[in-house]
Amino acid sequence: MLMQRKRLVAGLAAAAFGVAVGPIMASDTNGDSPLGDSPIRLLIPFGPGGGSDMTARVLTATAPEFCGPRIDVVSMSGAAGLEAVNHVMNAESDGHTLLVTDYGPIVTSGYVDDVEWSHDDWDPVMLFTEWLPTVYTRADHEIDSIEDWVEQLEAEPNSVTFAHAAPLGIVHLPLILFEMETGLENRHIPTSGGGETRSMVMGGHVDLGMTLPASIASEVEEGTLKALGTFADERADVLPDVPTFKEAGYDVSLPAWLMIFAKEDVPQETKEFLQDCFMEALATPTAESMSERTNAGIDPRGMEASADLYHNTVEMVGSILREIGEID
């Protein structure tokens, strides 16, 4: 219903003012498409306007040409995202209903929540990007580097307050992993999201926070915030001067990927077709300029590379959750 109205509203705007909103509702039927005419729906387990929403919308603008049918993005954040995940799980296995998510609602939820599916019921179709969780603080804070942070905690355990969004989410698990690795302890302060974390860090109410690089890149460049380190194997493109924890000598890397998932029982050739047409779409100049504009950092990878990454994450998150006693 949401989508119909979206089309209606968009159509209204186009009709009344002759504006080129065409690509949103493009439905150039591709005769060869094994997917027929009915639209592909990309379900997002988060509210509208966030990183996953904006990234997925690059496909609605570019992929219909290659995939055949129209592509709609549907945001369904109910039940902490599980409503979207379950909706895709209960849909027909025809490749028309797909899930776009980071590992939280699918890997972590698969362990800690009472769900009717297991991790093996999902297959990645492709990967959009990897977000690299980054620790940051305000410019005038006395902690300047990973080393300062560790020193302060060694001198006085539990003396650093650390703000992060939802517990066990993509900007909290890396901290837990770091503490497991080093035996250090921080005071964890959960917040309602990146915005609250940031105002608590900037207002001096907490010492450190964790976020994703795109949201702090321009402040770090300006010198109003400073980033201490990134939980990844390589430095973030937008934060080239910020070291990884690996460089500082801590083997802690937990990137938060954004992938498209299909149910495991969707026919293999359908998944391959979707992979191919999405990858083609993301290679177009339009997609690249949209990615550039939105700081989405789209760097697509195919289903095999995505599957490896997915299974690694499942294992890694499982071992963290077991270690902290969240699961048996």
Binding site: R5, K6, A10, V19, G47, P48, R57, T60, M290
Partner: peptide, 17 residues
């Protein structure tokens, strides 16, 4: 909600519009 739905038009309209 309407703003969320119309967000993608930003891609196609002039910034001021």
């Amino acid at each position: 909600m309407a703003i969320a739905l119309l967000l993608p038009t930003v891609f196609y309209l002039e910034p001021a519009s």
